[in-house]
Each structure stands twice: as structure tokens, then as C-alpha cells.
Nucleic acid binder design. Structure first.
Lengths: 147, 147
DNA sequence: CGACTCATGTCAGCATCCTGACATAGCGTC
DNA sequence: GACGCTATGTCAGGATGCTGACATGAGTCG
């Protein structure tokens, strides 16, 4: 089919490839639970930072406020999260997990953890920490801007 | 604003974070050239594998055949790539870069290369190859499936 | 206090990409 | 040659996410 020419051996392409594979694997294990990756990300963020605002969740899940807004509304409608009807102070509506949301998250977390373990199965602890530091360095350098 | 609680320190989150930062940085440098990431990816793939089919390009750019199809039609309309009107054999329409496409790609490649260099600026050659191998291992393990 | 800046929530419109489905061509097997 | 399997190109429909814009509230500085 293809002439077997070398695919791009750039770190950028490899990073995209790994992220794509991770995304596919996570979708695969979350689908049986009736959740999407964004669903899970939102719940996981709320578990770690209860009372987060919509905008904070959006930044944590790498989406816009608007997208996260419709998602949170859906989660609220389905009883996974709860928000006060009106802002106690300012315009921020702090969201929290409901018991149902916490229960749903527990199953999802287990599934995602298994994916992450599989992803790291071929690496020694030393290699893992090196890769971890390298990814942190890359993210920092990219965020620094062109200057 | 936030209580400064530790953000997820999982490799998966970090991978997504790095890929997101890379995407943002690439969009930033490609926008002045009037190109999107998918545009660039398609042209780069065609430069490395001339005569690729639409489906091959889709796999290489991590999108569906349908999405790549509309993209290639646009690139063909704008004179960046050329495809035969009818398939010489089978249904495959092999695409090739036009001189204009090659010229446009050259500028984009330079811009993307600068982003990649910035991304790797904080890493030693040894760290780079270790990270490269780690990403390859992670991708392989994820693609292997749950079994 | 008044003006300015910033962050947030929200609305409307649009672009992008995907899922599902279909017909067709090549390939291998019998 | 007939059949099944795979891959490709294409069409229609819908879900998802983003850009642009607006009003409001909080904090800051003169």
C-alpha cells in the first residue's frame, strides 16, 4: 500500500501520536461507562478542586469557558454535579460533585488508571521520571512564547 | 483564585498538557502564514510520501477520511496539491504537491521547526533521546489494546 | 468616589470533525 | 468464475467546540 518511507521522526509528531493514542484508549474504556473524556476530566478536576468555577474547569480541561459551560449544565441536569442557583458572591458559581457524581467518577478513575498503567508498563521507574521531567520542560518552553 | 491544590500529576494529564501547548504554539506561528495545523500536516505528509491516497493522509494526520477529504478538496481548489481527475487504477486518487504547495510548505516547515527547537531547548541530547524512546514505548503500549 | 482593568457567565453564529451508511474496486481463497 | 474480506471515496446528518460579543461584578489606582 505505502512505500514504507520513514514517517516523520520529529518529537512534535511523536507527541501528537502519543496523545492521540492515549485519547483513543481513554475513549475506549470510558464508553462502556457512558462517559466521554471531557466528562471525566471535569469530574476529576472537581474531585481535586471542589468548588471550582466554570472558567477554572475550562482551563483545566483545555477547552473554552463556553464549551465547559454546556458540559457542566449537562452534568448538573443529570445529577452529577450541583451548583447554587445564584452566586453567593460575584458571578462565580462554584460547582461540587454530588454523591452520584463521586460514585460515577470512582469507576471512571479506575478505568483511566488502568490505561495509564498500561501506557507506562514498558518503562522503568527511572525512565518514567525522566520522561515526566522532559514533558514538563517541553510544556514550559512552549508556554514561554516565541521570545 | 484557586486554592493552589496540586494539579493532577499523572503522566496522562501531562501528556495532554504538552500536546495542548504544542498545538497552541503551532497555531500561533502558522496563523500568520494563513495555514492551520491540519493544512500543514497534510502538506508535510505529501512531501514525505508523494502520491498518498486520501485515506493514508487521514491516518497520518489523525483525522477521519471524511475530514481529510474536504481538506484536500480545499487544497486542490487553492492550487496547493493536484490530483488526477479520475483514478488510474482502482479508486485511489494519488495526491501530489504543486510548486505552489511546495513553496508554501517550505515557509511553514521553517516556522514549525522553530517551535520544535524551542520545545526541546531545555533538554540535553541524552534527555531528548530518552524522552523520544519513552513516547514511542507509551504509544506502542497504548495501541496494543487492553489485552 | 470614579475610572480603569480584569475575570466571569452567557448568548448567538459558525467552523470543524465525527458517526453511520452506501457503492465500488482490489485481493485472496475456493 | 464466485464468494468473502478489506479498503477506498463519497454522501447525509448531527454532535461538539470555537470565535466574537455583551453585560456584570471585583479589584486597583488616581
Amino acid at each position: 500500500m505505502s512505500r514504507g518511507i520513514d514517517l516523520p521522526t520529529s518529537m512534535g509528531y511523536l507527541l501528537k501520536e502519543a496523545a492521540s493514542a492515549l485519547r483513543a484508549a481513554m475513549e475506549e474504556v470510558l464508553r462502556p461507562l457512558g462517559m466521554t473524556i471531557t466528562h471525566y476530566s471535569c469530574l476529576e478536576l472537581l474531585a481535586q478542586r471542589p468548588g471550582s468555577s466554570n472558567s477554572e474547569l475550562a482551563r483545566g480541561a483545555f477547552v473554552t469557558r463556553q464549551s465547559m459551560n454546556v458540559l457542566v449544565h449537562g452534568l448538573e441536569r443529570d445529577g452529577y454535579v450541583s451548583r447554587p442557583a445564584e452566586a453567593a458572591v460575584g458571578k462565580v458559581l462554584p460547582a461540587r460533585l454530588t454523591p452520584r457524581g463521586r460514585q460515577s467518577l470512582a469507576a471512571a478513575t479506575a478505568a483511566v488508571r488502568s490505561v495509564e498503567l498500561r501506557m507506562l508498563s514498558g518503562l522503568t521507574p527511572a525512565e518514567r521520571s525522566t520522561a515526566f521531567a522532559a514533558l514538563q520542560s517541553m510544556t514550559r518552553a512552549l508556554r514561554a512564547g516565541p521570545g
